[in-house]
């Protein structure tokens, strides 16, 4: 058993619980979303509390694999993950292993599914995902090729989940960076691709109005610096409030003692 002790609650516990309820309903919406051929494939997992903070830590570590604007996205959106109440992860467990087999053409512009099947080890048309070693799989966040219409289904499921969050006025946004971190953390291991939606019930939407160098200048760092500066100031200008009250300089006109 692990126990973490925080001095500061990040925000109101009731709001967090309500966001969790919305996330559960959004997950239901993802499950009932329309799918190609009506075939199942969507699964969901909800992260809160320590798990969500751990997810944010993974995002921060992933940022070091990138540079420029992608690195910035990882760093900035890590802040957003830490400000969120809940992360709903939606995965598709058929995208990699059981394609639609409809020859739709989206994976490689062909009238068949040969691009996906030729790239995977198969036995009589059954894809053997166990043939992909963990090392090979870890080279990229989402090991492909995948069945694109299955991933279109995943997008539709994400869209349906977003409808619920919008209807219930909970701020939410799907993020690639959080999705990568969820994959690296092994969330929904059956799904080789997944989309993570952050949700928040704060009075200010944490996913918009982002400052430059947001990983350095955000509400959490500002609050943290406030704590740091304020306690120091208290220490410097301490006095025994029971026996003494500082006087205003002469002639200011604001001296309560004079009144």
């Amino acid at each position: 058993m692990r126990e973490k002790i925080y001095e500061f609650e990040p925000y109101n516990r009731a709001q967090k619980n309500h966001t969790l309820e919305v996330a559960r309903l959004a997950a239901n919406a993802a499950l009932t979303a329309p799918k190609a051929g009506g075939v199942d494939g969507v699964e969901c997992e909800i992260l809160t509390g320590d798990d969500l903070l751990a997810l944010a830590d993974v995002m921060e570590r992933e940022s070091h694999k990138f540079s420029g604007h992608v690195k910035r996205r990882f760093l900035y959106e890590t802040v957003m993950a830490r400000e969120s109440d809940v992360c709903l992860v939606i995965g598709h467990y058929r995208s990699a292993g059981t394609p639609l087999d409809a020859g739709c053409g989206f994976c490689a512009g062909r009238m068949d599914c040969s691009f996906v099947y030729n790239a995977r080890k198969t036995e009589h048309g059954v894809i053997d995902l166990t043939a992909v070693s963990p090392e090979e799989r870890a080279k990229v966040p989402f090991h492909g090729p995948m069945c694109v219409p299955r991933n279109l289904d995943l997008g539709i499921a994400v869209g349906s989940a977003m409808v619920i969050t919008q209807r219930l006025l909970v701020d939410a946004m799907p993020f690639y960076t959080v999705s990568v971190a969820a994959q690296r953390m092994g969330i929904l291991p059956r799904s080789w691709i997944k989309v993570a939606i952050l949700m928040s019930s704060r009075q200010k939407n944490p996913y918009v109005d982002v400052l430059p160098d947001y990983h350095l200048h955000n509400l959490a760092t500002m609050e943290d610096d406030l704590r740091k500066m304020f306690v120091t100031l208290r220490g410097v200008y301490w006095y025994d409030y029971k026996t003494w009250y500082p006087r205003w300089t002469k002639g200011s006109g604001d001296d309560p003692e004079k009144e």
Binding site: A102, G103, C104, G105, F106, C107, A108, G109, R110, M111, D112, F115, F142, G144, M146, V148, P149, N151, I193
Partner: peptide, 13 residues
Amino acid sequence: KSAGMFGYGPACN
């Protein structure tokens, strides 16, 4: 880039 049964591929997922 060319067409399959339902559209043009390849596509970015």
